[in-house]
Computed example of a mutant assay.
Amino acid sequence: MAIYLTKESKVLVQGMTGGEGMKHTRRMLAAGTNIVGGVNPRKAGRTVDFDDRSVPVFGSVADGIRATGADVTVVFVPPAFAKAAVVEAADAGIGLAVVITEGIPVHDSVAFHAHAKAKGTRVIGPNCPGLITPGQSNAGIIPSDITKPGRIGLVSKSGTLTYQLMYELHDIGFSTCVGIGGDPVVGTTHIDCLAAFQDDPDTELIVLIGEIGGDAEEGAAAYVREHVTKPVVGYIAGFTAPEGRTMGHAGAIVSGSSGTAQAKKEALEAAGVSVGNTPTETAKLVLACLERGRAAAHS
Rank of each mutant, 00 (worst) to 15 (best):
N127H: 04
R294Y: 10
I212T: 10
C289V: 11
G276F: 03
H170A: 15
P143I: 11
T121G: 06
A261Q: 00
G272N: 06
F58A: 10
T282P: 05
I142C: 12
T229W: 04
G238Y: 06
G18D: 14
A296C: 04
V233N: 02
E218C: 10
F112H: 13
V99T: 10
I212A: 06
V87C: 12
S274Q: 13
S9G: 15
A139Q: 15
R294V: 14
G59A: 12
P126L: 12
A252S: 11
S175E: 00
F197N: 02
A297W: 02
V224Y: 02
M16V: 05
A270M: 03
A116Q: 10
A220I: 04
T229C: 10
I209Y: 04
D183P: 03
I104C: 15
G248C: 03
G182N: 05
V224H: 02
A222M: 13
G238M: 13
D52E: 15
Y223A: 05
A252D: 04
G159W: 00
I180S: 03
D108A: 02
Q164G: 12
L208E: 02
I172L: 09
V186P: 09
E226H: 15
N138R: 11
D108M: 07
R42Y: 09
G244T: 09
V186R: 07
P134Y: 01
Y4V: 13
A263L: 09
E281R: 14
T188I: 04
A216R: 11
K83A: 07
R292Q: 08
L285M: 07
G251E: 01
I172Y: 14
V207R: 05
T203F: 01
T176Q: 01
I35S: 00
A222E: 10
T229P: 07
A221N: 04
G234W: 15
Q164E: 13
K230H: 07
A80N: 15
S255G: 12
V123R: 05
A296I: 08
D91N: 13
G125Q: 05
R53C: 07
L290Q: 01
H190A: 11
R53T: 05
A288H: 03
T6L: 03
R122D: 00
A89D: 08
M22K: 15
Q198A: 09
A118I: 10
G19H: 15
S299Q: 12
K157L: 01
V13I: 11
D171M: 09
P79S: 04
V232H: 09
A252N: 07
F58P: 15
N127Y: 01
H115Y: 11
Q262E: 13
G219Y: 11
T6I: 07
V207E: 03
L12N: 06
E204N: 06
I146S: 06
V110H: 08
S60L: 14
F174I: 06
I212M: 00
T47E: 10
A195E: 14
S109Q: 12
F50T: 05
S144L: 00
D199L: 11
G130I: 01
P79H: 03
A31T: 02
Q14T: 13
P126Q: 07
L290A: 08
A114T: 11
E217A: 06
G130L: 14
T47W: 09
D171I: 13
Y163S: 07
L154I: 08
G95F: 07
N127S: 12
